[in-house]
Simulated assay, not measured.
Amino acid sequence: LSDRFFPFGAIQTDAVLSLDEDTTLSTSEVDFAFSVWRSFPERIVGFSTQSHFWDPEQRRWGYTSKWTNELSMVLTAAAFYHRYYHSLFTEYLPAGLRELVDGLAACEDILMNVLVAAVTKLPPIKVTQRKQHKEGVAQCGEGAAGTPPGGQRSPSAPHSAPARAEGTEGSRRFSQRQDCLEQLADWFGHMPLVSSRLRLDPVLFKDQVSVLRKKYPSLEKP
């Protein structure tokens, strides 16, 4: 799985559009996301987001895929980022981290987000999406917000009951992602991920004006 972020010589553009085989995007979504990335080329820009939080009861970092206003990860199932991060991922990260990714099978996008956050000290950026690019696992961790180690800022923990994972496969995948986040925090010695509540929309998005004045009217269709 870590081969996904290998710096292949065939990649000549600065921008990399990372897509899973089952991802469906409209041309308007791709166009707008790319325009945002051009303004923030050091960040991951994409659609589906997830987050982390400090669980004071378990005294560990928690992972959640619950849809909230808080985000700290953009899934590379549909995201733009700079090709430079392929070189960092392959040549800078210890081999043990790449082996961790290959062993858990649901960790490579978390590691890429952690790597970019560690380098930039900035969160990823979520952009407008027409369709719901939602991961199959709806489960999330829960717990009260507390004080993380080392004075790090803790994002708001989800307080509502977690949605039930869709079957054994969903439970296994969620467990792997939780384990991945914990091990990455141990490897780095702290939690590099940075939380944000920012989402970027096109100008006049959802405004009550003529669609002829809007550059991406198709993004507003259900």
Results as ranks from 00 to 15, higher is better:
113 N>D: 05
220 E>Y: 08
34 F>W: 09
93 L>Y: 04
167 G>I: 13
110 I>G: 00
40 F>M: 04
144 A>T: 07
170 G>A: 13
15 A>I: 08
96 G>D: 08
120 T>N: 04
48 S>Y: 13
128 T>D: 04
84 Y>E: 12
153 R>H: 10
14 D>F: 02
101 V>S: 05
122 L>I: 04
131 K>E: 07
199 R>P: 00
195 S>C: 11
196 S>I: 08
144 A>Q: 10
106 A>F: 09
147 T>I: 11
14 D>R: 14
167 G>C: 13
51 S>K: 09
116 V>F: 04
181 L>S: 02
212 L>M: 06
180 C>D: 02
101 V>D: 02
172 R>K: 15
137 V>Y: 06
179 D>Q: 10
63 Y>R: 08
220 E>P: 06
60 R>Q: 13
70 E>I: 10
189 G>F: 09
120 T>W: 02
162 P>C: 11
189 G>I: 12
93 L>E: 05
1 L>T: 12
71 L>V: 06
88 L>S: 03
131 K>S: 07
112 M>D: 00
121 K>A: 15
87 S>M: 06
221 K>L: 12
2 S>Y: 10
69 N>Y: 06
116 V>I: 15
85 Y>A: 04
19 L>E: 04
138 A>F: 12
76 T>Y: 01
208 Q>W: 10
111 L>G: 02
155 P>W: 07
59 R>W: 01
12 Q>F: 00
212 L>K: 08
100 L>C: 00
105 A>P: 00
145 A>S: 15
204 L>Q: 07
25 L>D: 01
218 S>F: 09
82 H>Q: 07
180 C>F: 03
33 A>W: 08
203 V>M: 11
123 P>M: 13
141 G>P: 05
108 E>Y: 02
46 G>W: 03
59 R>N: 09
133 H>I: 15
35 S>F: 10
209 V>E: 09
40 F>V: 01
34 F>K: 11
26 S>E: 13
47 F>I: 11
210 S>Q: 05
188 F>D: 03
98 R>D: 01
143 G>L: 11
49 T>R: 08
82 H>A: 13
92 Y>A: 13
64 T>P: 04
84 Y>A: 13
172 R>V: 15
219 L>D: 01
126 K>V: 07
159 H>G: 03
